[in-house]
């Protein structure tokens, strides 16, 4: 194809998206669109998969059967979300194995929030309430994104996500209304998860390199700073309701903006964690790669068994 023809196709392509038409896997698309989508969708899938680890940590120690079944179901959902997103990503012509390789080799990123440890039961509450809360804010606009398979996967993800946040908030509420020790656990978890949750919504607009193009492709509908403000404005009253204090001395209602002003985010910490120096980066990758490698014989055995069965069936048919 000549350069001019490609240019032409690109113009038509952008016009389709501007008209809110969806792009489907076999449609022509600019190489950059494909690459950007593989990057974002796989990063999203990896986050779901790695996101199982901090919570999996507490399944055996959940304080009641009610909490245990809920946590199990939540972690299972995250596996499911990872799988929806991986298969949506594969429609762009990359294999599952390549995607896993990128995760395991550190080439692909996942949400930096999962590199923080879950040290007490209250962390299960904070993760559900804050981390899933921030994720929902990020994800809801993606239900309308331009790439069909991604949008469809996100509709399913968002439908399931709200239970995650509610079960987290319920845990926090219960602890906050419990004994002084329990309330302290809840406050401590909020103290540790608040700032990382704000960082989770991404670098400030000035630092965000992908925003403009992503807005055009509807991979993004609101800027990181707008999403962060939305998250803060809706979460602060929730904390007040259960008597917990947001760990930000500069947090103040701004009557004029009808929004909360908030303190400086420690972006050095964010970039340190992104670059692999968070408290749990190594641990997470070790667990993930370990699970993959130790499961290899099971995958191979299943394949060998399937082939044997198939061969037997063919023999009988002759």
């Amino acid at each position: 194809m000549s350069e001019e023809q490609i240019k032409n196709l690109e113009v038509q392509f952008e016009a389709r998206i501007a008209r809110d038409e969806k792009i489907e896997p076999k449609d022509w698309m600019p190489e950059k669109y494909r690459k950007t989508h593989i990057r974002q969708m796989s990063q999203h899938a990896h986050s779901e998969i790695v996101g199982m680890l901090p919570e999996g940590n507490w399944i055996t120690r959940a304080p009641s059967l009610r909490r245990k079944v809920a946590l199990l179901a939540k972690v299972q959902d995250e596996a499911g979300h990872g799988l929806y997103l991986y298969s949506a990503c594969e429609t762009l012509g990359i294999s599952r194995d390549e995607l896993y390789d990128q995760l395991h080799s550190g080439k692909a990123k996942y949400s930096s929030i999962f590199n923080y440890p879950t040290v007490t039961w209250a962390d299960m509450g904070a993760v559900g309430w804050l981390v899933d809360g921030a994720a929902i804010i990020n994800q809801v606009p993606l239900c309308n994104t331009s790439y069909g398979p991604y949008a469809r996967a996100m509709v399913r993800v968002c439908k399931e996500e709200s239970f995650h946040q509610r079960q987290g908030f319920e845990i926090m509420m219960k602890l906050a209304n419990g004994t002084p020790e329990q309330k302290e656990l809840a406050q401590d978890a909020l103290n540790r998860w608040w700032w990382p949750s704000l960082m989770m919504l991404g670098p400030t607009d000035a630092e965000s390199i992908h925003t403009e193009q992503s807005m055009k492709w509807k991979l993004k509908r609101k800027s990181n700073d707008d999403l962060r403000q939305q998250f803060i404005d809706q979460t602060v009253p929730q904390a007040e309701l259960i008597g917990l204090t947001i760990p930000d001395p500069d947090l103040k209602w701004n009557e004029e903006r009808q929004s909360y002003d908030f303190g400086e985010i420690n972006w050095d910490e964010f970039w340190q964690v992104v670059k692999g120096h968070g408290p749990m980066n190594k641990e997470r990758m070790k667990a993930r790669v370990g699970a993959w490698e130790e499961g290899e014989w099971v995958r191979d055995a299943a394949m060998a068994h399937a082939e044997k069965k198939q061969a037997r069936k063919q023999k009988q048919a002759i």
Partner: peptide, 16 residues
């Protein structure tokens, strides 16, 4: 690995 496993996985992935 095979159709049977695909059914079982589909049950867990798509009909929870």
């Amino acid at each position: 690995a095979d159709a049977e496993m695909a059914l079982e996985n589909a049950r867990d992935v798509y009909t929870r």
